[in-house]
Amino acid sequence: MTPLRVVVLLRGGGPCDDAALRAGLALGEVTVASVTAPPGDDEALREALARGAGRALRVRDASLEGIDYHGTAQVLAALARHAGFDVVLCGERSADEAQGAVGPAVAEALDLAQVTAALDVRARMAASSSSAAMEAAAGRCACRRRSW
C-alpha cells in the first residue's frame, strides 16, 4: 500500500504547527513547507526533519514582506503543488499572527474541500473499493481523495 503523501504547512512554529506535524507523521510520508520574508529562520523546518519529515521546502523572498494572508496562501499552495500531496495539513493558527485565515485560503487556492478547527485526522482505506476515504476530524486540513 502506497503511503499517503502529506504536506504540512508550517507557520513559524508553535503549538498549532506542532499538532499539524504530529498528525501528519501519523498519516504518512511528510513534506514540510514554509514561506517567509527575509531574514526568517529554518528552525521549524529543521525540527520537523529531525522528527521524521522526509522533505522540507521553503520560499524566502523579500516580496513576501508585509503581504496579506491571501498572498501567503497563494505561495504555500504552490509549494504544496510542487511537492505533490494527497493531504495538506496546517495548524489552526500561527502563534504570532493568529488570524487563522491561511489554511482556508490555501484550500481555496488548491480548490480542495477543507475541515477546520479539527482535533485529529485519520485515514481509513475503504474495505470495498480501490479508493480511500479521508476521515478528517483534526488539524486544519485540506483533503482530497486518492487512488491506492
Binding site: D42, L45, R46, L49, A50, G54, R55, A56, L57, R58, V59, R60, D61, S63, Q74, V75, A78, L79, R81, H82
Partner: peptide, 16 residues
C-alpha cells in the same frame, strides 16, 4: 536529515 530545499517564486510559477 535531508537538506532544506530552497525554492524561489519563479520556480513555483509565481512572479513577484
Amino acid at each position: 536529515p535531508p537538506a532544506i530545499e530552497a525554492l524561489d517564486l519563479e520556480a513555483l510559477g509565481i512572479q513577484a
